[in-house]
Design a protein around this nucleic acid. Structure first.
Lengths: 226, 226
DNA sequence: AATATGGTTGCCATCTAGTGACAATGCTAG
DNA sequence: CTAGCATTGTCACTAGATGGCAACCATATT
C-alpha cells in the first residue's frame, strides 16, 4: 500500500502527528522531526493551520488546533466505539461463552448500554441496547466513575439483578475513561477461579482496547491496522 | 492564506472531515461530497487509511480510524484545554474581577485544578494548579459528574472552604464532559443578583467553549480562529 | 561592536508527483 | 437482458509541490 500513498498528504500527516505528540515545537523542530526542508514544513503547517488542525502561538510554537479536537471527539462517538470494540467483544464471548456489554456514561448518574453481544449458553444474561443502569452499585458504573484502575477489573454480585454477577473494566482514551467493558454472567455458573479467569481476560481486553486509543507517538499505524 | 495552501492536503483533509462527519459513506459518496474524481478520492482515502485516519469496512464503507481517535485524545489533553480556555478565562476575570478555575477529573472521586487565573480584587480566592478537590460537594465536581446540564450552572456555598461560594459550569466535547469552568468568590461579595449574573456569564462562556469543541461539520475554521 | 549561529519567511526554477479521463470489472435494479 | 452505477487500475500530461537560496531577525559569543 505504500507505493499508492500520496507523499504530500503523508508529509502533512506526519507533521500533524509531531505537533500533537510534542506540543510547543518551533517550525525548525517540526522540519527536523519530519526530515523536511523548512520551506516545505512551513507551507504544509500553514495548510494545517488554515484548516484548524494546528494552531500557532504568538511565540511561534505549534500546538493542536480546534479541528483535530472536534474530529477526535466525533471519532470517539458511540458509533466508533461500538465498531472499534466489536471484534474484541466477540472474542470475549468466544472465550467465555458469556454476554458482554459496552457501556458509556448516561445522563446524570447512569450508564447506558451501547453495544451488546450475547453469550452462547442457553441460559444467558439478556438485556438491550439503550438500557440505562445506575452508576452506583454496578460494575460498569464503578469502572466508568474511575474507581477501577486501568488494567484492573471489578466484580459486583447482585448489583442491578439478583441472579447475576457482573465483571467490568474501564476502557480509556489517554487518561480519560470513555467506556466500560463488562461481562454479565448467571451467578450459578461462577466460582472464584472462573471469576479470576474472566476478570483477567476482561481486563486484558479492556487494556488492549485502551492502548489502541492511547496517545502513542510514532506507532506504525499500518502495522496496527490488522 | 488560501493561495499558500497545499491543494493536495486540503483535499485529503476535506475527505477526512467528510468521513468523520458522515460515517458509513461509500467511495462514490466521498468523491461527490468533495467534488473530486473517484480515482483521486480513492487514492487520497487510501493514504488516510494507511495512516490510520480512516478505516474501510468489509462492505466498503468508510469511518474514522484509530489514529484520528488517538490524535483527538491527545489534542484534548490538559495542555490543550488550558490553551483553549485561556482567553475566555481571562475575559471572565476581566468581567467579574473574580478568580476563575479550570478543572478536570482526577483519580477516583476527585477533580484537579489544571489552570487558574486569579481575580483582580485585593481580597480574592487563591489556590494552586495541581490541587485536588473532591467531586462530592463542590461546584466543579457537580459539573464534572454530569449533574449540571449543558448551558447551565451550579452554585455551591461553603463547599470545600467556608468563606467562599463557587459557581461552576461544564465544558463538553460533543456529549462528553471534559472539564469544569468555575468562579470561586469570597461569599461576602455576593448577593443573589450577582450570583445570577456571574452564573449566566459563566454558563455562556462554558457553552461557547463547548461549542468550539463540538462536532460541527462544515465550519469555516479559518473564520473561527480569531 | 562584530561575528556566528540558528530561526522564519518568501521567491522561483525545476521536475516530480498528483491528476482525471478512460477502460475493465462487478453489482444491482428494472 | 440492459442500463446505470460503483470500484479499481492505468498512464499521458502538466500543474503544483519542492527545496535551494536569499533576506531578515534574534540571540549568543568573542
Amino acid at each position: 500500500m505504500g507505493e499508492t500513498s500520496t507523499r504530500t498528504v503523508d508529509r502533512a500527516i506526519d507533521l500533524l502527528a509531531v505537533v500533537c505528540d510534542t506540543r510547543g515545537m518551533t517550525l525548525a523542530d517540526c522540519a527536523r522531526a519530519t526530515d523536511l526542508s523548512a520551506s516545505t514544513a512551513l507551507r504544509l503547517l500553514r495548510t494545517l493551520e488554515a484548516k484548524g488542525f494546528v494552531q500557532k502561538t504568538e511565540e511561534g510554537l505549534y500546538s493542536p488546533g480546534r479541528r483535530i479536537m472536534q474530529l477526535g471527539a466525533a471519532a470517539l462517538s458511540e458509533e466508533s466505539l461500538i465498531d472499534y470494540c466489536k471484534a474484541d467483544m466477540e472474542a470475549l464471548v468466544s472465550d467465555t461463552g458469556e454476554s458482554t456489554y459496552l457501556s458509556v456514561p448516561g445522563f446524570r448518574e447512569t450508564a447506558i448500554y451501547i453495544s451488546i453481544i450475547e453469550g452462547t449458553h442457553s441460559v444467558r444474561h439478556t438485556s438491550w441496547v439503550g438500557r440505562t443502569i445506575p452508576l452506583a452499585g454496578t460494575a460498569a458504573g464503578e469502572a466508568l466513575v474511575g474507581r477501577v484502575a486501568p488494567g484492573a477489573y471489578v466484580v459486583v454480585e447482585k448489583g442491578v439483578e439478583a441472579d447475576v454477577t457482573a465483571i467490568a473494566a474501564p476502557v480509556l482514551s489517554g487518561r480519560r475513561v470513555v467506556a466500560a467493558l463488562s461481562l454479565v454472567i448467571p451467578s450459578y455458573r461462577l466460582n472464584e477461579v472462573l471469576v479470576a479467569r474472566y476478570g483477567e481476560l476482561l481486563a486484558a481486553t479492556a487494556g488492549s482496547l485502551s492502548s489502541g486509543l492511547s496517545h502513542e507517538p510514532g506507532v506504525p499505524t499500518a502495522a496496527l491496522s490488522s
